[in-house]
């Protein structure tokens, strides 16, 4: 086995195992920290796809931002951190769950095999910056509208957060 294959499977294994740990661990804080491992190994997989900017964005947004938010929420709201994860469900719920998840799996598999993945025959010269291509694609080509819509949604969320915190202050 090549070293790179070994590294790839390591990251893949880490992703799956830590994602399982997130779901099954009884302690919420432990689950949040294993989410960090998941997000990190996803970033590692991005690096394998030659998407260095995306990998760094994954780390800075999900690990540095959203995970910290989750941890804040967990640590500051709940006094009981350890809770039992009960998977006891009725028959109907189980059938429904199996149906929904297998449908989702089918859609994902279909997407995975139908998408025309750009397979690189040669190693891309890494001096070609992906940043430049992303910037041109977003700001000059087809993704300008989604980009602007996303930024407006974030702005609205920001204003909403400010409004909520202000309203509390006035009482």
């Amino acid at each position: 086995m090549e070293v790179s294959e070994f590294v790839f499977y390591l990251f893949a294994l880490l992703t799956v195992v830590s994602a399982l740990a997130v779901v099954t661990l009884p302690n919420v804080v432990h689950a949040a920290f294993s989410l960090m491992v998941t997000l990190f190994s996803v970033a590692g997989l991005y690096v394998f796809l030659q998407a260095d900017f995306l990998a760094a964005t994954q780390v800075i947004v999900y690990v540095g931002g959203i995970l910290v938010l989750i941890l804040f929420g967990v640590l500051m709201t709940s006094s009981k951190l350890v809770m039992k994860v009960s998977i006891e469900v009725s028959m109907w719920q189980m059938f429904g769950g199996i149906f929904v998840s297998s449908a989702l799996l089918a859609v994902l598999l279909l997407l995975t095999f139908e998408t025309p993945w750009n397979v690189l025959s040669e190693v891309v010269d890494s001096s070609d910056s992906t940043v430049e291509q992303i910037g041109i694609a977003i700001l000059q080509k087809k993704f300008l509208l989604p980009f602007e819509v996303a930024s407006i949604i974030l702005l609205i969320a920001l204003i909403g957060a400010v409004f909520i915190s202000r309203a509390e202050e006035q009482e």
Binding site: F33, M36, F53, V59, V63, G64, V68, L71, L75
Partner: peptide, 21 residues
């Protein structure tokens, strides 16, 4: 690295997790 400074920002933002931990 091509994304040099962005990589540094990303990596240094993870230190927060260690501190909370």
């Amino acid at each position: 690295l091509n994304i040099g400074i962005f990589y540094i920002l990303a990596v240094s933002s993870v230190i927060v997790i260690g501190i909370i931990m």
